[in-house]
Amino acid sequence: QVALSRTQVCGILREELFQGDAFHQSDTHIFIIMGASGDLAKKKIYPTIWWLFRDGLLPENTFIVGYARSRLTVADIRKQSEPFFKATPEEKLKLEDFFARNSYVAGQYDDAASYQRLNSHMNALHLGSQANRLFYLALPPTVYEAVTKNIHESCMSQIGWNRIIVEKPFGRDLQSSDRLSNHISSLFREDQIYRIDHYLGKEMVQNLMVLRFANRIFGPIWNRDNIACVILTFKEPFGTEGRGGYFDEFGIIRDVMQNHLLQMLCLVAMEKPASTNSDDVRDEKVKVLKCISEVQANNVVLGQYVGNPDGEGEATKGYLDDPTVPRGSTTATFAAVVLYVENERWDGVPFILRCGKALNERKAEVRLQFHDVAGDIFHQQCKRNELVIRVQPNEAVYTKMMTKKPGMFFNPEESELDLTYGNRYKNVKLPDAYERLILDVFCGSQMHFVRSDELREAWRIFTPLLHQIELEKPKPIPYIYGSRGPTEADELMKRVGFQYEGTYKWVNPHKL
Rank of each mutant, 00 (worst) to 15 (best):
M401C: 11
A315K: 12
S452N: 14
M257R: 03
V388C: 11
D280Q: 11
D376A: 10
F498Q: 07
N259R: 02
V288P: 03
G356E: 02
V349A: 00
T276R: 10
A374V: 10
G303I: 04
N385C: 05
G313D: 14
K287C: 08
N360F: 00
M408A: 06
Y504Q: 06
E472S: 13
D279P: 08
Q381K: 10
L368R: 04
V349Q: 04
K287H: 09
R282W: 03
Q468G: 15
Q369T: 06
N277C: 10
L289D: 02
I352Q: 00
V288C: 10
V388N: 07
G444L: 01
G307L: 06
L430G: 04
Y500W: 13
M493F: 12
M402H: 09
D372H: 09
W346G: 01
V300T: 14
R327W: 11
L471E: 15
M264H: 02
R484I: 00
G422Q: 13
N394C: 07
N394R: 08
W346D: 01
V391N: 04
L417M: 15
T420L: 02
L439Y: 09
N427Y: 08
M264V: 08
V337G: 13
D453E: 01
G407S: 00
Q258S: 07
E416A: 05
N427G: 13
A433D: 02
G502W: 07
I253Y: 00
N360Y: 03
N411H: 11
D376E: 13
Y481N: 12
I389M: 09
Q392K: 03
L466S: 06
P350Q: 02
V338Q: 10
A297G: 15
I477R: 13
I438C: 07
K429Y: 11
L359S: 06
P309M: 12
V366W: 00
V428I: 10
I352D: 02
T324P: 07
Q263K: 04
T330E: 12
D310M: 12
R254S: 09
Q263A: 00
Y421P: 01
G502D: 15
P309V: 13
Y421M: 09
L289A: 08
Q304M: 05
M270Y: 03
D310C: 12
L265I: 08
Q304R: 08
L471S: 14
R254Q: 00
G482D: 05
E491H: 13
L387V: 06
M270Q: 06
P326M: 06
G497V: 02
D372C: 07
V337D: 06
A364M: 13
I477L: 14
H379R: 10
H379D: 13
L439I: 10
G348V: 01
C266W: 00
N277E: 11
K400L: 03
E414S: 10
M447W: 03
K272H: 06
G375L: 11
E314W: 10
A358H: 02
T330N: 15
T276W: 02
R254F: 02
Y421D: 06
K290P: 05
C382E: 08
A332K: 00
K383P: 13
L417C: 05
P464V: 09
V286D: 07
F370K: 03
T333Y: 04
N427W: 08
Q392Y: 06
E344I: 06
G313L: 10
C382I: 13
H379T: 14
N394P: 04
K290H: 09
P309A: 13
S275C: 08
P478T: 09
N308H: 13
S275P: 05
R362V: 09
H379N: 12
C266N: 08
L430I: 07
E416C: 06
V496F: 11
V306C: 13
R456I: 05
L466W: 00
R345E: 10
R424Y: 06
T333I: 03
E414T: 13
W506I: 02
R254I: 02
V366F: 08
T503F: 09
N427L: 08
M264E: 00
K405D: 06
A297K: 15
H467L: 10
Q381D: 13
P478A: 10
R390Y: 05
R456K: 14
Y500S: 06
V256T: 09
H448N: 12
V337C: 14
P309D: 12
D418I: 01
V268M: 10
P406V: 08
R390M: 07
Q499H: 14
V441L: 05
C291S: 15
A489V: 09
A396E: 00
Q468D: 11
F378T: 06
F351K: 00
T420S: 15
E491L: 10
D310V: 13
T399M: 11
R424M: 05
M402G: 04
C443K: 14
N343S: 13
K505A: 15
A458P: 05
L262E: 06
I480F: 14
D372S: 10
V341L: 14
D490N: 13
V338K: 13
M270I: 07
E312V: 12
E501I: 10
Y305G: 00
F442I: 12
R424L: 00
N385P: 04
Q446T: 08
D347M: 09
G311N: 14
Q304D: 00
T276K: 12
N423W: 09
G485P: 00
